[in-house]
Nucleic acid binder design. Structure first.
Length: 465
RNA sequence: GGCGAUAUGGCCAAGCGGUAAGGCACGAGCCUGCAAAGCUCCGAUCCCCGGUUCAAAUCCGGGUGUCGCCUCCA
């Protein structure tokens, strides 16, 4: 397995801390608002990573957190009048439902910040004791000057005035680069008791504490892979790494992976630009699997420019998978082709080269179709093709629909009955060589976006866009 | 202002020094009553300029364009 390490900025061979095991931590969402396409892309990218490791027989422990205490959440509580619990449980549930629609597997552990407070407090206490953190009137800060390797992750120089001018000034901070580990709270805000004063955790500390609680090994590195969106590299991951390094003497992660952004009309979606395409809206328009396949089809590190046109084109490629699946649907389950499996894994183990993997798949599809055109009843081919498809679908997280149902998404039962009747009428017309009538029926269905296909197994239909 | 990424046929997109995968669209053909589906065939010298090399889309230098990070962000 080769992965691109975004700290080393090159592709490296993945060598696990412990043989055949891999521990992955992915930064999850802050649950104060709906998830958008960017969250989906990140989740899908690292869901693929996890599935590939599993397909390669690694024992995977996959952790994704929920940040459920934060300034933005508190602001939203004040706006909406909801309690922390009401607000965060609503968005957590929605996030999980949306991930399910996208076939993103649940993480093995899904810790919440609010469930990790005691570990966070202990973590900070130790840092204060080691004098890598200090207490001011409003917060406990991490002292970045104590970490000689600070900024080694993001390779950044932030001593220049222009950079610092963008950060709000605070005279109690020893250095403007220092960041809050704990914020002392006002009376009407959610807070937790701590020896250094009642308050709530800062954003960065929770991930360090969660990793230590749920995943950390005792060696040089706490986990194998830490992943997240490219915008998290600085300051979030830089700060996480610094805390853990100074507190435990260990490096947080052996490898760092970051996914590229989803842009719309060439611009990154962001809260401040309010150009987010929310998943609840996207999933109302498109099937979750179609959306997954589209977001999956570009390499995870490249930026992804979302367009409805491209999504519908991408669907055509997924359609081809399902059409072949229909052709082999009645076959029994058998052995997959060793060559096919090896070729797919070779592609995916090269830093998740999905384009190459899909090219291998398309070649397999074309080959199988060609043979089935010549001999529609080639039993052994049908068996191996079906096995190939089922295996691949588990690796890519697609193909969970029944292939006949897939082409009927968005068609009501009443409409289905209507279609069946019209097909019957058309077949009768065809028998009587009344092709004008048969074609009229086909045109009628086409107007309703129903495409007919006469096959050796009778007339089939698909819903088309 | 600092730092970084990227630029491949009409569109999406691989490529990681050895002579341009794949998908979609277009066109031609086979199949079909006609279609659809499927299959076959068909298109680029890789932003520009210089350099290294027997050999560069791939490495180096300099431009230009686009995007991003430096502030919440996946």
């Amino acid at each position: 397995m080769f992965i691109y390490d975004s700290v080393l900025k090159k592709k490296v061979e993945f060598i696990p801390i412990k043989e055949n095991e891999v521990k992955i931590y992915v930064c999850g969402p802050t649950v104060y608002d709906d998830a958008h396409l960017g969250h989906a892309r990140s989740a899908i990218a690292f869901d693929l990573l996890r599935r590939v490791f599993i397909a390669m027989d690694y024992r995977v422990t996959f952790v994704k957190n929920f940040t459920d205490i934060d300034d933005k959440i508190i602001n939203k509580m004040k706006e909406s009048g909801q309690s922390l619990e009401e607000l965060t449980s609503f968005y957590i549930k929605r996030y999980k439902d949306e991930m399910q629609a996208l076939h993103v597997s649940d993480a093995d552990i899904e810790p919440k910040a609010t469930e990790t407070v005691s570990e966070i407090v202990t973590f900070i206490e130790e840092m204060v004791k080691k004098e890598v953190a200090y207490v001011t009137s409003d917060s406990v800060y991490f002292d970045t000057s104590k970490d000689k390797q600070y900024l080694s992750l993001s390779h950044r120089l932030i001593d220049d005035e222009a950079s610092l001018a963008r950060v709000s000034q605070n005279d109690e901070k020893k250095d403007q680069k220092d960041f809050a580990l704990w914020k002392f709270t006002k009376a009407d805000e959610p807070s937790y008791k701590a020896s250094f004063g009642e308050g709530r955790p800062g954003w960065h500390i929770e991930c360090s504490a969660m990793i230590e609680k749920h995943l950390a090994t005792s060696g040089a590195y706490q986990i194998d892979i830490h992943a997240g969106g490219a915008d998290l590299l600085f300051p979030h991951h830089e700060n996480e790494a610094a805390q853990t390094r100074c507190k435990s003497g260990q490096e947080l992660a052996k490898y760092w992976m970051h996914n590229g952004f989803v842009t719309i009309s060439g611009e990154k979606m962001s809260k401040s630009l309010s150009n987010s395409f929310f998943l609840k809206d996207a999933l109302a328009l498109y099937d979750g699997e179609v959306l997954r396949f589209y977001l999956l089809s570009t390499h995870y590190r490249a930026n992804f420019n979302f367009s409805e046109e491209d999504l519908l084109l991408s669907k055509k490629r997924l359609d081809k998978i399902y059409r072949l699946k229909k052709r082999v649907f009645d076959a029994s389950v058998g052995e997959i082709s060793a060559t096919f499996k090896a070729n797919i894994l070779e592609a995916l183990s090269d830093d998740l080269n999905i384009s190459k993997a899909l090219a291998v798949l398309d070649e397999m599809i074309a080959n199988a179709n060609e043979i089935l055109d010549k001999n529609p009843k080639d039993k052994s081919l049908k068996i191996s093709t079906k096995a190939n498809l089922l295996w691949l679908e588990s690796v890519l997280g697609i193909g969970l629909h029944n292939p006949y149902m897939y082409f009927q998404i968005g068609v009501s039962e009443t409409e289905k009955n209507e279609i069946t009747q019209l097909i019957e009428q058309r077949n009768n017309a065809k028998k009587e060589k009344d092709f004008a009538k048969a074609d009229a029926i086909r045109s009628l269905l086409e107007e309703k976006h129903i495409q007919l296909m006469d096959t050796v197994n009778g007339t089939q239909w698909e819903k088309v866009n």
